[in-house]
Design a protein around this nucleic acid. Structure first.
Lengths: 292, 292
DNA sequence: GACATGGTGGAATATAGGTTCTATTCTTGG
DNA sequence: CCAAGAATAGAACCTATATTCCACCATGTC
């Protein structure tokens, strides 16, 4: 009953992750037939091509028939080429970080576990994912530009409403700790518009707003921008109405259709902004000291 | 010969790079019809999906017909969806390359990198570590207890000062979104003590404070506790003066002697508290509905 | 309030792509 | 050198997928 010469039979353990796949290819390379080895070469050397290109084009590049690629996938235990390709694609997306695995695990058993513990796991997992995305997507040059503006401002007004307001609170507090002239437009007495109208071209408006954008926030930012005030915004990408009136826009990867949107990302971004500003101030101070 | 209402006509300059594509989408977003805007959103928010998924699945996720995706591509000057998808794929490839570089660099010089980018990476990394710690250390029973108290309260006053104040802002806002009777003690007019004295045994004081603990916060919490008010606290462990007066204490893993302490953890904890409370309210509502 | 125009949904269509099958070639053991 | 088995090439097939088309609807205009 045992099949002889089962060299190309599927391995006993099914392959489900990219790393396993690489290992499997490398491990079985020797016992693979000639043409399949050619495919294996390409698979290990150019995984990106495996992820995106078509069977036909890959076959041509490898000097092989399309069917050979399918046989290769079968030899590794996949139902077809497409199934294998998915693994290559997932790797292209997932960018194997050390946190990745942990987040996935958290998410999995967070979804299964009910009650408060489950919420905690899910929420923390989502937060980590958000921070990862933030670190990936925020362009450092924009951050630098924002920092320069903040350092040079004669006055900084911080504006946000509703859900975003806590972020503004934090910014106003922390920038003051850096001894920068930051003021929180807190809406007491409905005076935000009036206060913001005092800003000049030497000042900065720091505005935070996400969908649905509070109209007053957009209005004030637009008015300030028109008067030549530098406008630094924390908002959700190039579709935001704040984007077009921003001198510098610090985008948060939008969280799509999720019913509950976290403040973890915006707040972390705010902290980064404050820290970077602090570093610049410190550097400037020590430079000044040295020239004395 | 000039076409009227050429809103969805292809732009004059053909798009050939991913950055141009992003810019084109963002720039023309406003003048795009409704359904195409939905697609534009997804395109900017989740470029990975556009690179890898099929027209059918993307259409389903966007709540749109497959043909709409093709129209979207046409509106941007592409011959079809496939042509546009190639740009997204090319971007995915480029980034995956640069990402690996970045990982290597992060490993190599770790926190040594200077400038805005370094701050960003460090801060996001710290945040993740914090969330992990939070998920590990927060006892779900305490969370449950806090949730029960909040759900049963006749009134909830939220108190925090200085650095912790943003967390209180968020809690007051979010609990109100759940239609709970939460009030933010915002300190306007210096009336926090007086307001808090109105709380009774049927109410909850929700206090947030970390070292150095603001004296007034501790005072108010102590007074409330003595009068039999339920006191829920978010603070830094059993050494906190708030701990002894708490009915329920939700501890944040202490961040030691770090000069800069992040609000990411406290805020995430606050979000968990809100979410768990929301779940309980929803469950209670559906139970009530069923018994009718 | 009727008309015109462009947007949208849905099914029909064309096609590109993956998969399977078979004759042929190559390899290996006797 | 021959025979048996496996591997391969190439074509045929079939499914999945993008695309096109048309009728209907919403919107804004005269």
């Amino acid at each position: 009953m045992i099949e002889p010469h089962a060299a190309t039979a599927a391995p006993a353990t099914p392959v489900t992750t990219y790393d396993q796949l690489r290992e499997a290819i490398a491990g079985r390379y020797a016992e693979l037939p000639r043409q399949l080895q050619r495919v294996a070469r390409i698979a290990l050397e150019r995984p990106r091509d495996l992820a995106l290109k078509t069977v036909a084009s890959l076959a041509q590049e490898a000097g092989v028939q399309p069917s050979t690629l399918v046989r290769f996938a079968n030899a590794l235990g996949f139902g077809g080429f497409s199934a294998m390709q998915q693994l290559f694609q997932s790797h292209l997306v997932e960018r194997s970080g050390s946190y990745r695995e942990r987040i996935a695990r958290m998410r999995d058993d967070g979804g299964e576990r009910k009650g408060a513990g489950g919420v905690l796991q899910r929420c923390a997992g989502e937060g980590m994912r958000g921070l990862e995305r933030l670190a990936d997507s925020l362009p450092p040059p924009a951050l630098d530009h924002a920092v320069r503006l903040l350092c040079g401002a004669r006055r900084i007004d911080v504006l946000a409403y509703r859900r975003s307001f806590p972020v503004a609170c934090y910014l106003a507090y922390a920038l003051n700790q850096l001894e920068l002239p930051a003021h929180l437009l807190d809406g007491v007495g409905g005076m935000n518009r009036e206060y913001a109208e005092r800003l000049t071209a030497r000042d900065v408006l720091l505005a935070v707003s996400f969908r649905n954008y509070t109209a007053e926030c957009v209005d004030v930012a637009t008015a300030c921008s028109a008067r030549g005030v530098a406008v630094v915004t924390i908002t959700d990408g190039p579709l935001s109405p704040l984007h077009r009136v921003s001198t510098v826009c610090l985008p948060i990867g939008d969280q799509g259709r999720q019913p509950f949107r976290s403040l973890v990302e915006p707040l972390c971004l705010a902290e980064v902004l404050v820290l970077a500003t602090g570093h610049r101030l410190a550097a400037a101070a020590s430079r000044r000291r040295r020239t004395h």
